[in-house]
Write a protein that binds this DNA or RNA. Sequence first.
RNA 1: GCCCCGUUCGUCUAGCGGCCCAGGACGCCGGGUUCUCGAUCCGGAAACAGGGGUUCGAAUCCCUUACGGGGUACCA
Length: 530
Amino acid sequence: MTVRTRFAPSPTGYLHIGGVRTALFNWLLAKQAGGQFILRIDDTDSGRNVEEALLPILNGFKWLGLDWDEGPNVDGTDSAGPHGPYFQSQRGELYKAAAAKLLESGHAYRDYAKPEELQELRTAAEKAGEKFVYDRRWMAETDEQAAAFEAEGRSAVVRLKMPRKGKCEFTDEIRGDLEFAWGEEADHVIQRADGSCLYHLANVVDDHEMQITHVVRAIEHLPNTPRQIFIALSLGYDLPTYAHVPFVAEPGGTAKLSKRKLEKYLKNKDFASLCNAGNEIAAKAGLLPDEENNSATFNPVIVDFYREIGFLPDAVLNYLLLLGWSLDDSTEDFDREAMLKHFSLGRVNKAPASFDPQKLVAFQARWMAKLSDDEKLASCLPFMQKAGFVSVSAREDEIAHATRVLSAADDRIKMGGDALNFDDFFTADSDLKFDEAVIQKRLVKDEEAIRRLQNFREQLAALEEFTVESTEQCLKQFVESEGIKFNAIIHALRVSTTGRAVGFGMFDTLALLGKERCLARIDRAIELAS
RNA sequence: GCCCCGUUCGUCUAGCGGCCCAGGACGCCGGGUUCUCGAUCCGGAAACAGGGGUUCGAAUCCCUUACGGGGUACCA
């Protein structure tokens, strides 16, 4: 039997990081077995603008490379898969037929209770300190009974006629053998008076119709499983294999990670610093924001965030894989191939795992370090273009310069957006901004500094070749002849050529800029300091 | 309230009765290297939630308390 798994997002307009992990597990399970991964859109209660709210989710999956075999088209329209439609809002007839069948077989009944009446019974039981068990007093099992209730002006919902004795046993691939007493289960409503059907029914019907073999979903669905098993069994379906994955918890906390609690997470310094890094990149790239739109999706709980600041999909996936799953006591680097080879539900942890922004960044840095020059350029180029470092047409000379800068930046670039930190190599010499405080410290307050710099400038000017080696050689000779230490000039040199106190290796910097630009900048700095 | 699920360093985790006075990773702290930053190299601190059992022996099995999470909807 081919393995078929599914992920059923509702069109909310964003893809939550915890959801991605669940989706990843589903995807891995299907793909490693040569099976299919299905995307089913849970839009039963949204209605309008589904397409618009769905696109960010599909884009997220696309970016991550979690391709789906069946489900909506990438543009958000329905696709003609063998088990479509893949929008639950379009599958109502299927659910109604199932409800009718359940009624027919006596596994469900028409119930004419009014919500208030039920509520009263419930409160009464609660007051008496008893567990509420519906005595089915408004249940109609025959048409006569139904007619009588209807004569009173009542209308019926369809309820499951749950067993009141015995227990429901099943195996969860992550949690092992489980049993729930049937008596704990209420007679859940599966169809409203207006004929529309509820989640549990829809879910079971869809999983069956779509031939889902493994239901891998969040832990909050575990208590729902018995009633779904009841529905499935009553309908004569084979049961899928179940696996309930723990939730992803807040950074530094144990509560479930939610995109609604951003304020709170911002108090966590690691979370806040990731946010800040993102905001800085976005600001420099001119991506930002209309505030409102932004805070909703531009934050580390939502995957879009990572795409927008230049994370690598593989890094995000690698981190997420290890958030609750491990192979052994030491293997941490998993590319897709390795994930597909080794993943198994049995090794998914039972306990929730808390989201650690720092570790995510560490994974991203590792993946970035593995990239070739070309790949690194590909990751950074979009940002450099947005910031105007490189024109949209990306001329050959611009690309060559950008590549050299990136290469000199080396592992200082952890994510694509970090390329924006090196604007000093792209701004015109006349526009270069000097850090006032550093100029003060290294040029103004140091009495000898300007004279030395002026002298060294002449040495540089005399160089025929202007390379890392030649400039280094030049400085060495200069330092020797002046009888000073490296340190006595290098900081002044750095701030005058880059405007800053920190940067790449000094000679990388000089060579990167080239003779003319170095001289022009040094002249400006000297002028500024004098 | 009731019913479920969970609990190893700050965090992610290894561990499925002796290999564990608990291993790895991220982070943290100290030091080396270095023209700054980054990187890198050495070294360090850091955990079996508490209490009872079972056993020759428990992080591992059982019970219990605490804590966290979820369910208990004509939400998904």
